[in-house]
Design a protein around this nucleic acid. Structure first.
Lengths: 336, 336
DNA sequence: CTCATTAAGTTAAACGTTTACTTTAATAAA
DNA sequence: TTTATTAAAGTAAACGTTTAACTTAATGAG
């Protein structure tokens, strides 16, 4: 026996499907008695509405798609967590899409999401290519960018101000008395997370009258291995430094590990500040001082914005720069 | 102008919708000439099929639902990664469902998944209550369990043998010459991940003629704080020990941190082995020796099994015990 | 030339809802 | 009593596909 449909309920309650539908939606146009009959039939048959059929007529699926470059990173999953939380609260489901490195599957996924008629899209941590923008535009659903942005197209985004956050981190080290400050950066070609952090660092130095020395910054590609390599390079080639700003926690940890191996004490011999505040930043020893990005909250905000765009069909775009904050743990200390 | 439908294509190509549908599905019953016309119309109109409408008639949505207790844990996201990877390869989308602690939202989500007509369900890391089982049974879709199992119901699962893995970890310490071995466990009430690991530990001791001392095991609830608390308790109350088996990496790290704070050198003074091999196990210093659970692969396997269950409608259940392995890093050393 | 076969195509029902429109009957107002 | 009003329902179209059943015309066999 197949699952009960609204027709079965109607038959069992001896009314029309329209009436059943009305009862189920709490509309008007039926007596208390009919309502009882209907409810009883629903109960007996274990009826559950079919959202697919509903979606077909409403042209609404109550589903959003979320695109990530790496689903499994701690980073993405924190954002996802926030998105999912709000979505479910508001009656939406979320389809996760792993676009893989370089957005290899982005176009493919965009098409799937279109065919599946999602009501909106969250696009995270990847640069929004023109091609993507066009595809999304054709779908005529709202998008919201998280942890990325587009200067070319007016699309609402949620992100922290990387430049400012990097400035903050660097300035913090300076306030602690450091003047020889190295940096492990992301790729300067990355205009979203790479360049701005590098520039924030430079600006902070400049504003404090500290000379920028190019050999004091090394690119670590945001990951652990990159961090250790960059640290080794810095130790070998850069003029001595008493503090280090790493543009990601992973790189910070890579750097800490080589320091540890070489007997460089943290924070006594070297102060380190990271960026991201991933879960493990507080797990390592000593716990990492870092820039906290409120990822879960950013996910929530994005979800909320997107859904209001969907429901109110409002056309106004509003982006949010969410504020980072610096969490002081134990890897930075004042220079005497 | 609304998105083009198959009717629009039919009109533009001057054929019936049935014909369009057939050429789109590469069936027979049309000439080359018509195919050209249709393809051209598709092109011009930018037609994309509507999966919702298709789902309604096919009774297939090409979508699976995945239930997790914590979406944001590194643990879950590795599994999700594997699931998503295979799913997309096979043309399925995945809806993520965060059931929250204690499965507070599990029933609610099961209902959503039913209404959305998912074709199958992956249920992870949570005990399958009777209530859940009934709900899923009523949906008449295949389920597969990951990282959990049910002795009561015959449902295929993918997991490692926790008892055996814990035995392995403990035995490894013993082979390294340790005989005073403490354990930080999960809750013994947890029959999936808690008890079996504890029993694996006990069994390994027994098989090697080592007495089990109750005060040498402390419950750390699988998380960091629990790990640090348990470690403190052990240090204070347990008879001295030279090695420690922690039933999760997080707890292992918690323990390592208190060791570090108290000047206990790892592995010189104390050997530690963890369980899970989360991403950060190799990031910390010294890198953690631990039991590797192939989470991504488990996700892949689950996805594959589920989809074959969906597609072949085969009714045979086959579970997989996947093999863990011990990854030797730098937190264990032989006792002289 | 007739009949069967086949290829190329069309028609229309079905999937499970929602909803605009219509009908029916009861009640109230005049 | 007649007419308007209202509440309680029913009817049927629509959403965008797929597909079984049917039609038409061309081809070939006998």
């Amino acid at each position: 026996m197949n699952p009960a449909t609204i027709k079965d309920v109607a038959k069992a309650a001896d009314v029309s499907v329209a009436t059943v539908s009305r009862v189920l939606h709490n509309l008007t146009g039926y007596s208390d008695k009919t309502k009882q009959k209907v409810m009883q039939a629903v109960e007996e048959l274990g009826y559950q509405p079919n959202a697919i059929a509903r979606g077909l007529v409403n042209k609404r699926t109550q589903t959003i798609g979320v695109l990530f470059p790496h689903v499994s990173s701690s980073f993405s999953s924190d954002i996802l967590h926030g998105i999912e939380e709000i979505a479910q609260e508001k009656g939406f489901s979320v389809i996760v899409c792993n676009t893989a490195e370089e957005g290899k599957r982005t176009m493919k996924y965009l098409q799937v999401l279109r065919e599946k008629q999602v009501d909106g899209i969250v696009f995270t941590s990847e640069v929004l290519k023109d091609e993507y923008f066009q595809a999304i535009k054709e779908m005529r659903v709202p998008v919201i960018l998280v942890n990325t942005m587009s200067q070319k197209h007016m699309i609402p985004y949620v992100k922290v101000d990387d430049h400012q956050a990097a400035y903050h981190a660097t300035d913090y080290l300076i306030q602690k008395g450091h003047r020889e400050i190295a940096m492990i950066s992301g790729s300067p070609k990355d205009r979203i997370a790479g360049l701005p952090r590098l520039e924030g660092y430079r600006q902070a130095l400049a504003d404090n009258g500290i000379e920028y020395i190019e050999s004091r910054v090394a690119n670590g590609d945001f990951n652990l291995e990159g961090g250790t390599e960059a640290m080794k390079k810095l130790l070998a080639e850069a003029p001595p430094f008493t503090a280090l700003f790493a543009a990601s926690d992973e790189m910070a940890i890579g750097a800490m590990n080589v320091a540890l191996e070489r007997g460089i004490k943290i924070p006594d011999d070297l102060s380190i500040i990271g960026y991201d505040d991933l879960k493990f930043a507080r797990m390592i020893y000593p716990p990492l001082t870092t820039i906290h990005q409120p990822l879960t909250m950013m996910g929530r905000m994005a979800s909320e914005k997107l859904i209001s765009l969907i429901e109110e069909d409002s056309t106004q775009v509003s982006s949010s720069i969410v504020s980072h904050h610096l969490v002081e743990r134990q890897t930075v200390r004042s220079k005497p």
